[in-house]
Amino acid sequence: MRRDVFQAIADPVRRDIIQLLSNETLTVNTIAEKFEVSRPAISKHLKILKECGIIEINKKGRERFCEIQPRNLIPAFLWIKQYNKLWENRIDAFENYINEIQIKNNKNE
């Protein structure tokens, strides 16, 4: 099965793993300890992240270290970014609406 970055970020646990690894390289065991799901479930999430190219897993001695590959998150960032202006406009319109209501309420007091 061919996987992509969107499959990687589709699951909240995988997004949390990405967040953890954005700060530092961690061992598989360290990652697993931070979640209340089974170790096999974490291993499956890590496998998907690896298949999507979001992380690399390097073995050093007995430990397997997971390291994020942030450049492979760029396609998701670019896709989301295209909607940035849309949401900014909607938020601005909502802010204007709230301001109008406050002005009307202040005049009625």
Results as ranks from 00 to 15, higher is better:
Leu73Ala: 09
Ala41Phe: 09
Leu20Tyr: 11
Ala76Arg: 06
Asn72Tyr: 08
Trp79Asn: 10
Glu88Gln: 10
Ala32Gly: 04
Arg2Val: 15
Leu73Glu: 03
Trp79Leu: 04
Glu88Ser: 15
Glu109Asn: 11
Arg62Ser: 14
Asn84Cys: 06
Leu78Met: 13
Asn108Pro: 00
Phe94Pro: 00
Asn23Leu: 04
Leu78Ser: 11
Ile55Ser: 06
Asp11Met: 02
Ile98Lys: 15
Arg15Met: 10
Arg3Ile: 15
Leu21Cys: 08
Asn72Ile: 05
Ile17Trp: 02
Glu63Val: 15
Pro75Leu: 11
Leu86His: 09
Asp4Gln: 04
Tyr97Asp: 07
Ser38Thr: 11
Ile98Met: 11
Phe94Ser: 08
Met1Pro: 01
Ile80Leu: 06
Gln102Phe: 14
Lys107Phe: 05
Phe6Tyr: 12
Pro70Thr: 14
Tyr83Met: 11
Ala41Val: 11
Cys66Ile: 07
Glu63Pro: 00
Ala8Gln: 02
Asn108Thr: 10
Arg14Thr: 09
Glu67Asp: 02
Ile68Leu: 15
Arg15Asn: 09
Arg14Glu: 02
Asp4Val: 08
Ile31His: 05
Glu100Phe: 05
Gly61Ser: 03
Phe35Thr: 12
Glu100Thr: 15
Pro12Val: 08
Ile101Asn: 01
Arg3Glu: 05
Leu86Gln: 09
Thr30Leu: 01
Asn58Ser: 11
Pro70Asn: 03
Pro12Gln: 05
Lys44Gly: 07
Arg62Gly: 13
Ser22Gly: 06
Leu73Met: 09
Ile68Cys: 11
Thr25Leu: 00
Gln7Ser: 05
Lys85Phe: 03
Arg39Gly: 02
Gly61Gln: 03
Lys60Leu: 13
Ser43His: 08
Ala8Trp: 03
Ala32Lys: 04
Gln102Arg: 12
Ile31Val: 15
Pro40Gln: 09
Thr25Phe: 02
Ile42Asp: 02
Gln102Val: 14
Phe77Pro: 00
Ile9Tyr: 05
Glu95Lys: 06
Asn84Val: 10
Cys52Ile: 08
Ala76Trp: 04
Ala76Thr: 10
Leu26Arg: 13
Ala10Leu: 08
Lys85Pro: 00
Lys50Trp: 01
Pro12Glu: 02
Gln102Gly: 00
Asn72Arg: 12
Lys85Ala: 07
Ser22Asn: 01
Gly53Phe: 07
Lys47Pro: 00
Pro40Phe: 12
Asp11Asn: 07
Asp11Gln: 10
Leu20Cys: 07
Ile57Ala: 15
Val13Asn: 03
Asp4Leu: 07
Thr30Ala: 14
Thr30Gly: 06
Asp16Glu: 04
Pro12Tyr: 07
Ala76Tyr: 07
Ile9Leu: 06
Val28Ala: 12
Val5Tyr: 04
Phe6Ile: 13
Arg62Thr: 14
Ile80Met: 06
Glu51Gly: 08
Val28Trp: 02
Arg64Met: 06
Gln102Asp: 08
Pro40Thr: 15
Ala93Ser: 12
Cys66His: 02
Met1Ser: 13
Glu100Gly: 12
Asn23Arg: 12
Lys104Pro: 00
Leu86Ala: 11
Asn58Asp: 04
Ile101Glu: 02
Ile101Tyr: 02
Glu100Leu: 03
Trp79Asp: 10
Lys50Ile: 01
Lys85Val: 12
Phe35Trp: 14
Ser43Phe: 13
Leu46Gln: 09
Asp16Pro: 00
Asn84Lys: 14
Pro12Asn: 03
Ser22Ala: 11
Val5Arg: 05
Lys81Trp: 09
Ala76Leu: 01
Asn72His: 09
Asp4Pro: 03
